[in-house]
């Protein structure tokens, strides 16, 4: 009997290439850029958010403009501007060599993430009851002190879920950096199957790695939320609930 549809899939290739050194380099690069860009982007985002809610018009204006501009243009274009566009304008060899694919990716993703984090942190700040600011100021704190000691610590708790989201989104968005020759995970897979033509197998390898990373960070996020919940409530959250919560489900108890 003739088979209409034959599935050609070499499961062996998946295991063969799973710990391939090019793949592992891709995993490492993806993780490095994601973690560093999230850290830098969050710090910058907090600064932008505080600027946005301040009473100073120039500061608030600049922050709003930055967010509008960065969110309004594709990160792909931003990558190309940093890696190709700027060196063209600056014209110095040193400058061009300084901007390696890794550094360009890091700078771009940090600046890009800052714009999204600014909005998230701003929402967190504005979610805090005005009574908190009243109390802080009544005790003699200046606006900045009140922000640092009272408002931001509370706001940052609120923003952990959306930040975790951003982290997971960035893990995957780093694949766009192939345009500037950055060897992240997807590029690594493509490099290998360009030679051995095992397209699907390598894409499966990459996907499994992405799943491992995103799941690990989801669990970390859930753990952070659970620990902070101990402060707000009295009881700790049991382990099964934590795991379920990490995978995106579970009941709020």
């Amino acid at each position: 009997m003739d088979v209409f549809l034959a599935i050609r899939f070499d499961g062996g290739a998946v295991t063969e290439f799973f710990f391939n050194h090019v793949i592992l380099r891709g995993v490492r690069n993806t993780l490095e850029v994601t973690i560093l860009a999230m850290l830098l982007g969050t710090v910058l985002g907090i600064i932008l958010a505080v600027m946005r809610v301040s009473h100073s018009r120039p500061l608030a204006g600049f922050s709003a403009f930055y967010v509008w501009f960065i969110r309004g243009t594709p990160v792909l274009i931003q990558l190309l501007v940093v890696y190709n566009g700027l060196p063209q304008m600056v014209g110095s060899d040193e400058f061009t060599h300084f901007l390696t694919p890794f550094r360009s990716a890091l700078i771009t993703f940090s600046l890009n993430e800052a714009a999204y984090m600014a909005e998230i942190v701003r929402a967190g700040i504005q979610a805090i009851e005005p009574g908190q600011m009243d109390a802080a100021k009544s005790l003699g704190m200046t606006n900045l002190q009140a922000m640092r000691r009272v408002i931001l610590p509370q706001a940052l708790r609120v923003v952990i879920p959306p930040t975790g989201n951003e982290f997971i989104a960035m893990l995957k968005n780093t694949s766009v950096a192939f345009v500037i020759a950055f060897v992240e995970l997807t590029t690594a897979a493509r490099l290998i199957y360009a030679v051995n033509f095992k397209v699907m197998e390598l894409l499966v390898v990459a996907s499994i790695w992405y799943l491992i990373m995103t799941t690990a960070f989801s669990v970390l996020q859930a753990e952070m939320e659970a620990r902070l919940a101990i402060v707000e409530r009295e009881r700790a959250i049991p382990l099964t609930s934590r795991v379920l919560r990490a995978l995106g489900g579970g009941r709020e108890r």
Binding site: G131, K137, N143
Partner: peptide
């Protein structure tokens, strides 16, 4: 603002809804 903050420090106020710092 800094001057005003210093004077505020000499006046205590207790609010209807406490406004304690939950963290």
């Amino acid at each position: 603002e800094a001057r005003v903050a210093r004077v505020r420090a000499t006046i205590g106020i207790v609010f209807q809804r406490f406004n304690l710092f939950p963290h």
